[in-house]
Design a protein around this nucleic acid. Structure first.
Length: 119
DNA sequence: GCATTGACGAAGG
DNA sequence: CCCTTCGCCAATG
């Protein structure tokens, strides 16, 4: 998927790629920005993944951004959702336990695109 | 064009 | 796991 997706200018279609990957995260699973970045080839700049997510809420096919957290499993982006509680609410529905802004057993729920999707 | 900021990551403590 | 420092790249002022 999309690693080579770039415009004529050389600008990667970062948004599309990120959204595409995030949408493929199975229910009850979560991943980190770095993992997505790694899969897209922008591993060194995980910030760009997060930045791309900034526009995610504008996307027509809603991106399950609640399944994307930082490397520690912390819901760092919860304040960017419609409501600050929406993120953990959604995660709870997927049987993911969130305690104190963090995901319990993060490693157990971890979903690496470069592995699960078969890099 | 430089400085600041950011839904981050790794390493050291 | 939390904190600090540094690095990363694009957007913004």
């Amino acid at each position: 998927m999309a690693k080579n997706t770039k415009k004529a200018d050389g600008t990667f279609t970062f948004f599309d790629d990120v959204y595409a990957v995030v949408r493929q995260i199975p229910k009850g699973r979560v991943t980190s920005y770095g993992a997505i970045g790694n899969f897209l080839g922008t591993a060194l700049s995980a910030r760009m993944v997060g930045w791309a997510m900034n526009a995610a809420h504008n996307q027509k096919p809603k991106v399950p951004a609640h399944r994307v957290v930082n490397r520690n499993g912390m819901l760092t982006g919860k304040f960017h959702f419609a409501t600050p509680t929406l993120m953990e609410e959604l995660l709870m529905k997927e049987k993911i336990i969130v305690k104190d802004e963090k995901i319990i057993d993060f490693k157990k729920h971890y979903w690496d695109p470069s592995v699960e999707l078969g890099l």
